[in-house]
Design a protein around this nucleic acid. Sequence first.
RNA 1: GCCACCCUAGCUCAGUCGGUAGAGCAACUGAUUCGUAAUCAGUAGGUCGCCGGUUCGAAUCCGGCGGGUGGCUCCA
Length: 642
Amino acid sequence: MEAVRITLPDGKTVEVQRGLKIQDVASSLGVNSDVVAAKVDGVPVDLDRVLSRDCALDWIPLDSPDGVEILRHSTAHLMAQAVQSLFPGTQVTIGPTIEHGFYYDFKRDQPFTSEDLERIEAKMRELAAENLKVTREEWSREAAQAMFRLMGEEYKVEILREIPEETVSLYRQGDWIDLCRGPHVPSTGIIRAFKLTSVAGAYWRGDEKNEMLQRIYGTSFPTEEALREYLKLLEEAKNRDHRRLGRELDLFSFHPIAPASPFFHPKGALVYNELISYMRRLYLRYGYQEVITPQIFDVELWHRSGHYDHFRDNMYFTRIDEREFGVKPMNCPGHTFIYASKKRSYRDLPLRYADFGRLHRYEKSGVTAGLTRVRSFSQDDAHIFCAPEQIETEMTNLLKMLREVYRTFQFTEMQVKLSTRPEHYMGSVEAWAHAEASLAESLKREGVDYQVNPGDGAFYGPKIDFVILDALRRGWQLATIQLDFSMPERFDLTYVGPDGTEKRPVMIHRAILGSIERFLGILIEHCGGAFPLWLAPVQIRILTVTDQQKDYAQGVFRELTAMGWRAELDDRNEKLGYKIREVQLEKVPYAAVIGDREVRDSTIAPRRRGGENLKPASVKDFMEMLKTEAAPEAGNDRAAQS
RNA sequence: GCCACCCUAGCUCAGUCGGUAGAGCAACUGAUUCGUAAUCAGUAGGUCGCCGGUUCGAAUCCGGCGGGUGGCUCCA
């Protein structure tokens, strides 16, 4: 019998009989039993794959990233098997793995209830206990199609119709079979630590026009401990949920009277405005000028800007004096009027107009969520009007500014996406190509890694979106930079060039925080409600031990507020422990305890959020010490970790 | 917008078979004057999201509407 040469992970080579299965090689080599699959020349395959040629072999242990992926995919199959055995007539569609688990979409008229989920989970445990062998079979596409048609699996038939290969792989476990590329774990007994988490509707192939399927989400881990840890993380995420913290910290609320439109309470408004002040200080350094523009414009403007054609479904309209008006969903068209209010020279450019104006966008009822997706919001919005040859410098400065801002908020991880021409667009294809190339060029020059997001641009131009990862590693789109050649055209904006002829400026739409609402929501979750000193709505609270210190404490309070600190005085007749508990739960960065000792020595006894007691000091000395920490550039204070 | 689920005091949640509403915390009053995460006692607080239906009787069953949550589609 012929032999094939196998290169092992350690670089050694062995010769084995052609036709041997990978698992035979594994057991003869005494490879660890937690190997669930292998890679042949880098391609993941099942352990029962036959070795037919020389190749490099690598093992995939269960607890490796590839192993977990395979485990989850196999768990999805196990779930589908359980579902079809419990609910005959249910059709399977697709069941991929996702970041923290998997899902499988089913076609069934009856909705799955939470009791059904429990039954499915129980059935899965049963099937796992049977330790069914999972085997791969190769079928001709036609035969597979015929079989699935016979089984009434219309979706599988449709999927098969679009597979170009003549041969497809099916996986069988017990009496259950599914079309799948694989690989899978060798037997169902390996699947142990799993949990079905939720049911949801999902359109077939993700298209709104298609019928709705039922998606069951679940997750699976190599060990019970890992699963428990994950569930604990979910629990922790719940505690950080900005909607919950917003209520607990009295930052904002919502009311059905204005759906998806936040009411910012005094403390929330303070943080909100502090974010804006921070941006305003940056604007001074980066050469921006703030403007204020109308809220409501005659629809004529929206026709001209293209919003009426491309954004109407997201806009609010109102009729008055026989005129139709639209509430602004964006600031850009308004800014063109300031630009056009007088004749512009190349010497005026670039003009950078910043606007914190309130925007209203109608969002479909099902998509709104807390502060992260609202109908009424404002952005740290700005429009840069510049000459085409200035785009490069502007982009460089924008990226610099963006990095500075994200460093301040300790958003260290960021993904960059270049979104290109969408289906509904304005302007010429050439202008789009030019704009897309400019953006790509800028990113390359700045050494920024990015992915292309085809068809995801704004209707007036391509954009670079910045997705930051929060403390729980969830991605959020905040910043956006959009290059626009068509709005200047539509509003006939010009400037006089050095040669005396009229030229067309370029508009760069950009936001760094994005919507202040969303940014605040993300920030709350990122820091768990423990704002850095410069953002904390209350920076320090004075706590008296008994009523004896009331007068002195009031003096300290007056002193602090006179110095510009956001201070509160808790001189209630309560025990110190009670006041400490409250100040801690409210995540106030500092407490200043005042008892008889402090009155006697004219000091305060500071306590940091988290419990660290600091040396008593005079008000003046202590606050002097906090000054550096109170600067945004100091980033999160140390106590924010608590 | 679509699918599923949820809505009881300010908050978190009980409320059995359809028989007319309950706890803890918070609030308020009083006592207590206390040194780093909860002092004690008392008082008050409800159109059970809203509208309709079934029923002798609805927080409970049914329908509609509103709001929210998890997804899908869309998106700052």
